[in-house]
Design a protein around this nucleic acid. Structure first.
Lengths: 348, 348
DNA sequence: CTGAAAGCGCTAACAA
DNA sequence: TTGTTAGCGCTTTCAG
C-alpha cells in the first residue's frame, strides 16, 4: 500500500503558480501564459485566472522564472555613491527606459573605492543581470575580467574609458574643460586651477584638465594647475578644504574649474572665509548644472549636460543590444559623446 | 543500445556549480559548502575548489540558490526618488548594516506617486525580499495588503505611520515643528507659514505643522498657515515658486518652516527676487541639515537628524527581527522615534 | 488554445 | 568530511 504522507500544512506560505492553477482549474502552464498577456489564452480562461490571482494575492516568484527562462529581468548598475546627484539623474532616465521593457534596475554602490567596486560588481553578477552599466574611466583588471566572463552587454557612461569594453555613452569632458577655460579667459583670468576630487577614479578630472590646458595653451596662458584630493568625505567638503592648498600652490589663482557643482560650492565658501571675493578676485566654474546653482549668491556658472537624457540613451543602447543578440547579429560597439554647454551666471 | 546524444557544446555559457565540481573532482554539494566557509569542508578540498572557481571564473547564481534555500538575500526598500539626499543617507546606513549580514539592498522608486509605489512594491515582492523598508505615513490599502501577504518583516521609517504595520523607526517631526516655531518666536516672529511639498505623501508636513501650531499656541501666536503644493518638480523648484502664493495667503509672513532644505533654498531665492531680505524681513528654517546649508549666504538655519544612523537603526531592527523569526519568538513591534536638533545659523 | 514532462542551478536533509 | 536524492517555482518544449 502506498504511503500517504500528506504534506504538512505549511503555514503562511506564499501561494505558488500551482495553487493558482488548482483553484482556477487549469494547469500551471496556463497560469504562466495568462500572466504574459500574449493572447495565447482564451479570454474567459485568462479572466478567471487573473481573478484567482487577485483573490489569492499571488505574486510570481521571479527568481524561479529567471532560473527557468534564463532571463533575470535585471540590469545592473554600479554607482559610486548613494548621494551623487548626477548618478541619480542618470539612473532615473535609465530606469524609465528599462521599465517600459519590463526590466528592473539593480544598483550596486562602489563608495568611490576600487575594491568596493569589485565587490559590488560580483554581488551584482550573482543576480545574473542581463546587462551591466557603469562609469567609464579606469577599472581594475578584475572588473574587466568579470564583465567579460559575464558575457552580457556592458555600457560605460560619463567618462571616456581608457580601453572601452563594449558600448560607450560618454560626455564631452574635454570640451567641458575647454569651455570653462574659455569662459575664464574671456573674463580676463590667466592663472587657472582645475580641481579634481578623488585620484583613483579620476579620469573625469584628467579629461577636463586636458581640455582646459588645450584652451589655455591656445590663448597663450600659463599652464593650469591640477589639484586632486583623495578621500574627502563629500564634494562640498573637499572644495571647502582644498582652498588653502590651492592658494599655497597657486597664490595668484584667479580662475577655478571644479570637478562638480558641489566642489564649487565648497570652494566659494572657502574663498569667502579667506576674504577673497567671487568672482572679483577668483572666478569659479562648476560642473553638472545642479539646480541649486541658480539660487546661490553669486549664482553659479557651470558646465551642464543632460543627465537624464544620458540615462535614456544608455537604456536605448541596451535595448538595441538585446535586439542584436536576439537576432544574433554582431552587436556593434556603440560610441557616443554627449555635448556640454556653458551655463553662464555670476560666479565666473 | 542507449542513445548517446552528447549535449550540444553550449557556447559561452556561464559555468555552473556542477562544472566546478567536475573539474575539482568533488560533488556539487562540496562546492556549495566550500563557498560558505563553514569549516564543514576539509582545508585541502576547499582550497582546491576555490582554485577551480577562480580558474573558471565561476560566479554562483543566487537566483537558483534563493529558490532552493528560500532565502533571496535581498532586502527591499521603497524610496520616493533617485535624488532625495535624505533617502540616500538612510540607504547608505542601511546598506552598511545589511552588507555585513550578507544581504543586499534592492531599491524601488515610487516617484512620489501612490500608483508608482504600488508598482514598485509589487516588482520588489516578485524578488521575494526577506524584508521590506519604506517610508512611514500614509499608504494605499493595496500596499498594506501586499505587505501583509508577503509575510516578511516590515520597517516604516521617517514619518510616523497612521497605522503602523510592524516596526517603526520614526523621526520626531512634531518636535521638529516645535523647535522651528520656538526659534522663530524667539527671534520675534509672529506670522508663521509651514511649507509642505506634495499632498499625497505629506504626513511629514502635517506632523511638523502640528508641532509648530502647538508651539505657536503655547506662545499665544496666531495659528501658522500650512501650504502644500502638489506636483512640483523638485523641492528647490517648489520653494522658488510657492513664494508668491505664500505672500498672497499670508502677506505679513515673517517666519517660514520648510519641508526640507531644498525648499528652503528655493524660498530664500524666491524671497530675494521679490526684494525681501532674509532673515530681516522673513526668517527661513529648513529641515534635514544638508551640508550645503552651511555654505549658503545666509547660512541656513535648519532642523537636523542623523539620517545614516536612522538607516543603521533600521538595519538593526531587521537583523533582530530575523533572529526572532529564526528562534520563532514573537517578534515584538519595534518603536523608536529619533530626536532632532536645531542647527542655528543665519537664515533664522 | 491547453496540458504534460523535463529541467534551470542550487541547497536541505539525510545517508555514508 | 563527503555524497546522494529530491525538490524549490517557474518556463521551455513538445504533444494534443
Amino acid at each position: 500500500m502506498a504511503r500517504l504522507d500528506p504534506p504538512a500544512p505549511k503555514f503562511k506560505v506564499a501561494p505558488t503558480m500551482a495553487d493558482v492553477a488548482r483553484v482556477a482549474g487549469v494547469s500551471a502552464m496556463t497560469v504562466s501564459r495568462a500572466l504574459r498577456e500574449d493572447g495565447s489564452v482564451s479570454k474567459a480562461t485568462r479572466a478567471r485566472v487573473l481573478e484567482v490571482i487577485d483573490d489569492l494575492g499571488y505574486v510570481p516568484d521571479q527568481a524561479a522564472g529567471a532560473l527557468s527562462s534564463g532571463r533575470s529581468g535585471l540590469v545592473g548598475m554600479i554607482a559610486p555613491s548613494f548621494t551623487s546627484a548626477m548618478h541619480g539623474q542618470v539612473a532615473r532616465g535609465l530606469n524609465a527606459t528599462l521599465t517600459k521593457a519590463g526590466l528592473q534596475l539593480f544598483i550596486g554602490f562602489a563608495d568611490f573605492q576600487e575594491e568596493r567596486e569589485e565587490q559590488a560588481l560580483e554581488a551584482l553578477l550573482r543576480r545574473r543581470p542581463e546587462a551591466v552599466v557603469l562609469s567609464g574611466g579606469r577599472h581594475t583588471a578584475k572588473v574587466t575580467r568579470m564583465l567579460a566572463n559575464a558575457a552580457v552587454p556592458v555600457v560605460e557612461f560619463f567618462c571616456s574609458p581608457e580601453a572601452p569594453m563594449q558600448h560607450v555613452v560618454a560626455v564631452d569632458l574635454r570640451g567641458a574643460g575647454r569651455l570653462a577655460a574659455e569662459r575664464l579667459a574671456a573674463r580676463g583670468r590667466r592663472s587657472l586651477v582645475v580641481l579634481g576630487e578623488s585620484d583613483g577614479f579620476d579620469v573625469a578630472t584628467q579629461e577636463r584638465a586636458r581640455g582646459a590646458c588645450d584652451e589655455a595653451a591656445r590663448r597663450g596662458l600659463p599652464e593650469p594647475t591640477m589639484i586632486c584630493g583623495a578621500g574627502a568625505v563629500t564634494p562640498i567638503d573637499f572644495g571647502a578644504h582644498v582652498v588653502a592648498e590651492m592658494l599655497t600652490r597657486r597664490p595668484d589663482v584667479d580662475g577655478v574649474i571644479c570637478f562638480n557643482d558641489g566642489v564649487a560650492i565648497g570652494v566659494i565658501a572657502g574663498l569667502r572665509r579667506l576674504g577673497r571675493r567671487v568672482p572679483d578676485d577668483v572666478a569659479v566654474i562648476g560642473f553638472g548644472d545642479h539646480e541649486v546653482g541658480r539660487h546661490l549668491d553669486p549664482a553659479l556658472t557651470t558646465i551642464g549636460f543632460n543627465a537624464p537624457a544620458l540615462g535614456v540613451e544608455v537604456g536605448k543602447v541596451l535595448l538595441s543590444a538585446f535586439e542584436a543578440v536576439r537576432g544574433s547579429e554582431e552587436a556593434k560597439p556603440y560610441r557616443l559623446s554627449l555635448g556640454v554647454e556653458l551655463v553662464g551666471r555670476d560666479s565666473a
